[in-house]
Computed example of a mutant assay.
Amino acid sequence: MSKVTPATRALTAAGVGFTIHAYDYDPEAESIGRQAAAALSEDPARVLKTLMALVDGKSVCVIVPSDQEVSMKKLAATVSGKSAQMMKPPEAELVTGYKVGGISPFGQRKQVGTVIGQTALAHDLVYLNGGQRGLQVRMKPTDVRDALKAIVADVIA
């Protein structure tokens, strides 16, 4: 497995500190984020999942703890939209340039607005997908927010 991805290149170019953590990806897992947390022996609240959504037809990246679900109503309100829905996997792959299960908020093919759940900032360090299945990057949540110019909001259902 290569540990150099568009995500790690983007983080390095931005001067953001991170560490790389590989794990055995299970494509059959019911929850990719929770499976990653278990494989890394981490609290699921510290392992964040990257989701792609559409708000009024516009692409939005949403980052929340792997054991939580996004409220579409709260997400839409956060970005001054009327309605939100999850993006279909083929569309998410096209927009991000990553395969589902390996979508990172960093180094996406097309830069989109990002929302990070406020609970993520309660931790010293968090994990996010590093740009491929079975690869996580660990970093400060404030660095995630700053690097992505993310909106911090309560978007948990």
Rank of each mutant, 00 (worst) to 15 (best):
M1F: 07
M1G: 13
T5G: 10
P6H: 03
R9M: 14
L11A: 02
T12P: 00
A13L: 12
G15R: 02
G17R: 11
F18S: 01
F18P: 00
F18M: 07
F18K: 00
T19N: 02
T19H: 03
H21L: 11
A22H: 06
A22S: 14
A22L: 14
Y23G: 00
E28C: 01
E30D: 14
E30F: 09
E30M: 10
S31L: 10
S31F: 10
G33F: 03
G33I: 01
R34W: 01
R34L: 15
Q35T: 00
A38N: 02
A39V: 04
A39Q: 04
L40Y: 01
S41T: 05
E42K: 04
L48M: 10
K49F: 05
K49A: 03
L51A: 05
M52T: 02
A53S: 10
A53G: 06
A53W: 06
A53H: 09
L54I: 05
V55T: 03
D56F: 04
D56G: 00
V60K: 11
V64A: 14
P65D: 06
P65T: 03
S66C: 05
S66F: 02
D67H: 10
Q68V: 12
E69L: 15
E69Y: 10
V70T: 14
S71E: 13
K74C: 12
K74Y: 09
T78E: 12
T78P: 00
V79D: 12
S80M: 12
S83I: 09
S83Y: 11
M86Q: 10
M86C: 13
K88I: 15
P90G: 07
A92M: 12
L94R: 15
V95F: 13
V95G: 05
G97D: 04
G97L: 07
Y98Q: 08
Y98T: 03
Y98R: 03
G101P: 15
I103W: 13
F106T: 11
F106V: 12
F106P: 06
G107I: 11
G107E: 05
Q108V: 07
R109Q: 13
K110Q: 14
V112S: 08
V112I: 15
T114S: 14
T114K: 07
I116P: 03
G117H: 12
G117A: 14
G117Y: 04
Q118G: 05
A120P: 14
L121F: 02
A122K: 10
A122G: 09
H123K: 04
L128M: 04
N129V: 03
Q132T: 15
G134T: 01
G134K: 00
G134D: 05
L135C: 11
Q136T: 00
V137H: 01
V137D: 04
M139P: 00
M139L: 15
M139F: 11
K140V: 09
P141N: 05
T142S: 15
T142I: 13
D143L: 10
D146E: 12
D146Y: 01
D146A: 09
A147L: 08
L148D: 05
A153S: 13
A153I: 07
D154T: 07
V155M: 06
I156C: 08
I156H: 07
